[in-house]
């Protein structure tokens, strides 16, 4: 049911947020960000899901003609594709940040970042 998916996505979002706030290690925060984004993507897809329908891939002529009532909403799927790629980009950048952080601070502990304040 859609409700299950929604519940799961909210759980994932919550877990991601909790992970970001409760973790001290930057790499773990990155993982939590990924979890958060997975949750959001799941939410997005579940919005478009209608039970019993097919995936929105028009692989035959007859499907092309009368697709409307038979496939799930394709728009969220396109959105999620984009969002996953964006998440990938962010993650890659985050990891490079983690490397530079280790080089400059000798640690990836976020609570060591206390030089800029006031």
């Amino acid at each position: 049911m859609n409700l299950d998916f929604y519940a799961l996505s909210i759980f994932l979002i919550g877990a991601g947020l909790a992970g970001i706030f409760l973790n001290r290690d930057f790499v773990k925060i990155l993982v939590s960000i990924s979890v958060l984004e997975s949750g959001v993507n799941l939410l997005l897809i579940s919005i478009g899901y209608v039970q019993g329908r097919l995936a929105p891939i028009l692989f035959s002529q007859e499907l092309k003609a009368s697709a409307v009532g038979k496939v799930v909403d394709p728009v969220p799927q396109a959105l999620v594709l984009t969002a996953i790629v964006i998440g990938l980009g962010l993650l890659a950048f985050g990891l490079s940040l983690a490397i530079w952080m280790a080089k400059n601070f000798e640690t990836t502990d976020v609570s060591e970042l206390k030089r800029l304040r006031g």
């Binding site: 970001i20 976020v110 609570s111």
Partner: peptide, 17 residues
């Protein structure tokens, strides 16, 4: 008021939420 921007990431995240 300067203490608001204390430099702690957790605090900033808390503001957001």
């Amino acid at each position: 008021f300067r203490g608001i921007y204390s430099g702690s990431l957790k605090l900033y995240g808390f503001y957001l939420m």
